[in-house]
């Protein structure tokens, strides 16, 4: 005789998520985008930085260039895939940076409470009111545009909201019986935070992470558009749109395809994020 399988909260959430058509579509499309950006550049017979002076400004579907070429005769399709790869990577890594800082900060503040909490969160309040993008610009200008700095700079901006969410969750979690039980069992504060608090605040964190990734991609593209992000010949969606905007009178495809890719990517993440929020936190519907 088999026991009827139990349904965990995560099972329920997954079922709700799979019932959300926009979110499922977003996941499928995003999976496709990730796949082509990961494998594509190896399959296209051009290198992303290969200059070809004879095939300059070739329109789409001519001379074997699916999406045409740019002012230096570089194949747009392969550059677009590389740019997508760079943008996705930046989105992922910078979000991870913000995740680590935000969770550590918020959980510490929420768990310790009292004066520590007051000071830590007041600092977040102060940072919150800064026009941060201007500081990121300043940072990029000051220390030059290297890709590592982009990760750090954007990640350092995005952790604020994360820390607020995590702190709020921690405050309510630490009142729960199982934390008291852990304390009674003799666990130290570090072990309780790592082993019991953090695993239990995953839900809202996951939701916020999926909404942070597009925000980061947007921020990076914004910097790249101003000429402060990824540097040539490397491409990101932002640099492609920026150079496309410069050459659009000559070659509309250089603007249109990167823009469309950008919008599609952001939409996928937003659909998934909205879907996850509805699935994990149904009371907000």
């Amino acid at each position: 005789m088999t026991a009827s399988p139990g349904r965990s909260l995560w099972d329920d959430a997954r079922r709700r998520l799979m019932g959300n058509r926009a979110a499922v579509l977003g996941m499928i499309l995003l999976g496709g985008l990730v796949l082509v950006s990961a494998l594509g550049p190896a399959l296209v017979p051009y290198a992303y930085d290969a200059v070809n002076k004879t095939d300059v400004w070739v329109p789409p579907l001519v001379h074997g260039h699916v999406l045409g070429t740019d002012a230096l005769g570089r194949d747009l399709f392969v550059r677009l895939l590389m740019g997508l790869r760079v943008s996705l990577a930046i989105g992922l890594v910078a979000t991870l940076v913000s995740l680590v800082i935000g969770v550590a900060w918020g959980a510490t503040a929420g768990f310790l409470g009292g004066v520590v909490d007051e000071v830590m969160m007041r600092l977040v309040d102060v940072l919150y009111t800064l026009p941060f993008i201007f500081f990121v610009i300043l940072l990029m200008v000051t220390f030059g545009s290297n890709i590592l700095l982009i990760f750090v700079a954007i990640g350092a901006v995005e952790w604020l909201t994360m820390s607020r969410i995590v702190r709020g969750q921690t405050l309510s979690l630490k009142q729960k019986e199982f934390i008291e039980a852990a304390r009674a069992a003799g666990l130290g504060p570090g072990a309780i935070v790592l082993g019991h608090i953090i695993p239990n605040l995953l839900g809202p964190v996951v939701v916020y992470v999926t909404l942070t990734i597009p925000a980061v991609i947007l921020a990076e593209s914004f910097l790249s558009f101003l000429g402060l992000g990824v540097q040539p010949p490397m491409a990101s969606l932002g640099t492609l749109i920026a150079s496309g905007a410069q050459d659009m009178e000559m070659a509309w495809w250089l603007l249109v395809f990167p823009s469309a890719t950008m919008v599609l990517t952001l939409m996928c993440f937003n659909f998934i994020g909205d879907g996850l929020r509805d699935a994990i936190d149904p009371k907000d519907r």
């Binding site: 597009p214 947007l218 593209s221 914004f222 558009f225 932002g238 749109i241 920026a242 496309g244 905007a245 659009m248 009178e249 509309w252 603007l255 249109v256 823009s259 950008m262 919008v263 952001l266 939409m267 937003n270 659909f271």
Partner: peptide
């Protein structure tokens, strides 16, 4: 509204210039 928040200003601006300007 959903699509609108996904289209950054640096996409709409050049596209609108291309269509209505150039």
């Amino acid at each position: 509204a959903i699509v609108g928040v996904c289209i950054p200003t640096f996409v709409t601006a050049p596209l609108l210039v291309l269509v209505f300007g150039s």
